[in-house]
Simulated scan of single mutants.
Amino acid sequence: MSLALIAGQGDVPRMIAEHHKDAGNAPFIIVLKGFESDWVRGFDHEVCGIAEIGKVLSTLRAKGCDTVSFIGNVKRPDFSSLKPDLKGVSLLPKIISAARRGDDALLNSIVAIFESEGFKVIGAHELLDGLTQPAGVLNSVAVSDSEKADIQEAYRIAGAIGELDIGQGAVVCGGLVLAVEAQEGTDEMLRRIARLPVEIRGTEDERKGVLLKRPKPMQDKRVDMPTIGPSTVLKAAEAGLKVIAAVEHAALWVEVEKLKSLADADGLSLVSLRGNGDWP
């Protein structure tokens, strides 16, 4: 396998790149213009515009890459402002059409382009052990029966918005849906929760409520897997939540030992549900 990472922002691209470099198999990095990070300077890389598809493909072939992984956060672009190359011009109408149906359709169309060009596409979780977690309570903070009920309701709601290709996360407190995730992302959703009246949410002194993230029901798990990182725990704590939950081997728990330490310190439970949403 000759690996290339098509990298957005966040810690996961760096972690995977450094892991493979330490193992003697440093990946080539395609850095998307506008999403550059300092760590890529230590790797062979090329900066490409998000619509420079021809440049990306030709560069990957020139570097001998046969496997690619799309990793990191990339905000949905303003398609009218993109500057495609010739290959991008031919493919952009198809991509824009898919984007109108939602993020899942957009990502699937991009994966299909690379597969049709002969590249194998793999997920971040296949490149670094420990990014996903088995079913269980991951840290030392216990979960009450009422919180388990909120988890199940949040699982149902997140599945419903996923069916509509809206988002991957939901927040439920005392049976009340406080928020669902859309284009703003998890961190902004949690900031909204922190601004809600304390009568309907938890506080840092009396934690209540659940954040649950799960893949969309028809999602290709090789791209855009739900991610829970240190900022998720910190913002959930600021919002007064008690539980952060995901599904076994269907979420990226970034720096999981750090997550456990942060959650224990703030009194949050970290839970990985069974694949069908059942309590572990």
Rank of each mutant, 00 (worst) to 15 (best):
Gly88Met: 06
Ala149Pro: 01
Phe79Pro: 04
Val74Ile: 03
Thr186Leu: 14
Arg156Phe: 04
Glu181Gly: 05
Leu127Lys: 12
Val143Cys: 10
Val121Glu: 11
Phe114Ser: 13
Pro93Leu: 11
Val143Ile: 15
Val180Arg: 00
Ala194Lys: 10
Glu199Leu: 14
Gly123Arg: 03
Arg191Pro: 08
Gly88Phe: 04
Ala124Tyr: 00
Asp150Met: 00
Ile95Gly: 02
Ser140Arg: 13
Glu204Pro: 04
Asp104Trp: 06
Ala142Pro: 06
Val171Pro: 01
Gly175Ile: 01
Glu126Gln: 05
Thr132Val: 13
Arg76Phe: 10
Asp78His: 14
Val141Lys: 06
Ala98Met: 02
Val171Tyr: 02
Asp150Arg: 00
Ile166Thr: 04
Phe79Gly: 07
Pro77Lys: 09
Ser116Gln: 15
Val111Phe: 01
Ser90Lys: 11
Gly118Met: 07
Ser81Arg: 14
Glu126Gly: 02
Leu127Gly: 08
Glu204Trp: 01
Gly102Asn: 04
Leu178Met: 12
Val177Ile: 14
Asp150Val: 00
Gly167His: 03
Arg195Ile: 08
Val89Tyr: 09
Asp205Ser: 15
Leu106Ala: 07
Ile96Ser: 08
Asp129Ile: 10
Ala154Thr: 02
Lys120Ile: 04
Ser97Asp: 14
Ala170Thr: 00
Pro77Gln: 10
Arg76Val: 11
Gly167Thr: 04
Ala105Met: 04
Ala149Trp: 03
Leu91Met: 14
Ile95Glu: 01
Ala179Phe: 01
Ile166His: 01
Phe119Ala: 04
Ile151Thr: 07
Leu127Tyr: 06
Glu153Ala: 07
Leu91Tyr: 09
Lys87Trp: 09
Gln168His: 13
Gly118Ala: 06
Leu86Cys: 10
Gln168Tyr: 09
Glu199Met: 14
Ala182Phe: 06
Leu107Asn: 13
Ile151Val: 15
Asn108Lys: 15
Val172Gln: 01
Glu126Asp: 09
Gly130Asn: 10
Ile161Gln: 10
Leu92Ala: 12
